[in-house]
């Protein structure tokens, strides 16, 4: 069976690409520290030596629209074009082309449907910065095939937080039941407290540093039950109007497992958001067998 060699969760900050590549007067003062942290985080994936990446993210009204909105969608295509005109315009993100892994996509869809998740699918999916940001930070070579998994954290009505955790746990079982000798990493990105298009946006820190501290502790400690007890679709409005993206972190906690402490935790307090980086090695420290 396939081996789940790393579970990696982080924020996705679309400004990283531009900040990290800027030079001279254009380079922001926080860029060097940010790059150091990202390079250390990148090593957590590299040392697990994955063959294929399952990428959990959320389309930001790019391809998926309100006339036909899936809650959970799995891409099944040989290739994925990436990044959209408005991401190039606002964030300077490059156009990309990523390879797909259709066999694992098909397995995730079949096994997910059989496990009670009515997953939507797409055979022609253009992916956005929720998936390309972690490719840029964690695997800039963009050389590994991917299976995109999109969640709706954006267009209410949304699935309940518990459903994200359940899907994460199911994804792990599905990957570990895949008859293959491939080494699989699951990478998911979301947000801590975040405000977009509201009065608390683009402040000197994230909109709710107290929520961010508690959220980092839940993720780092694998405290799924405590997190579920405190987080609801209603409560997530309070830390910031885009904080429902935290549910993608909850999905990743589901992949890692209840009570499973993260093997790697780092944060960076930036303007606008708290960045956070986590890795788990299900098979043992540093991606080597326990």
């Amino acid at each position: 069976m396939a081996e789940l060699v790393a579970v990696i969760a982080s924020t996705h900050h679309p400004f990283y690409y531009r900040a990290s590549t800027a030079t001279g007067a254009d380079r922001p003062p926080f860029a060097d520290e940010w790059v150091r942290k990202i390079e250390a985080f990148r090593a957590t994936l590299t040392r697990a030596r994955p063959d294929v990446l399952v990428m959990v993210g959320s389309d930001h009204f790019h391809q998926l629209w309100l006339d036909n909105m899936p809650q959970f969608l799995v891409g099944k295509a040989p290739f994925y074009d990436a990044n959209f005109y408005n991401e190039e315009r606002e964030f300077g993100l490059p156009k990309m082309l990523l390879k797909g892994h259709e066999e694992l996509s098909a397995h995730v869809l079949r096994a997910g449907l059989d496990a009670g998740f009515d997953l939507a699918f797409s055979n022609e999916l253009r992916i956005d910065h929720s998936i390309t940001c972690p490719i840029i930070t964690l695997r800039p070579e963009a050389d590994l095939p991917i299976v995109p998994v999109y969640t709706n954290i954006f267009a209410p009505p949304l699935p309940q937080p518990k459903r994200f955790v359940q899907l994460g746990a199911a994804l792990r079982e599905i990957i570990e039941s895949w008859p293959s000798d491939q080494r699989v990493a699951v990478i998911g990105t979301g947000h801590l407290s975040l405000e977009l298009g509201g009065p608390r946006q683009f402040g000197p820190h994230g909109p709710d540093p107290d929520f961010d501290r508690r959220a980092v502790a839940w993720i780092a400690g694998g405290d799924i039950e405590e997190c579920l007890a405190e987080v609801s679709l209603e409560s997530l409005h309070a830390p910031g109007n885009a904080t429902h993206g935290f549910m993608d972190f909850m999905l990743m906690m589901g992949v890692a497992g209840e009570g499973r402490k993260a093997d790697y935790v780092d944060t960076l307090d930036l303007f606008h958001t708290m960045e956070a980086y986590f890795a788990w090695y299900p098979g043992g420290q540093n991606g080597e067998p326990a």
């Binding site: 930001h60 009204f61 408005n86 315009r89 606002e90 954006f154 267009a155 977009l196 298009g197 509201g198 009065p199 608390r200 946006q201 683009f202 402040g203 109007n241 885009a242 303007f271």
Partner: peptide, 28 residues
Amino acid sequence: HPFLTLTLFIAMFERDHAEPLGFQREYA
């Protein structure tokens, strides 16, 4: 949807502000 409004208005008016994030802060 605040994300849609923000994204489009940044596209239209960020260029009129000299300071980085000047428009985003005025928006807030």
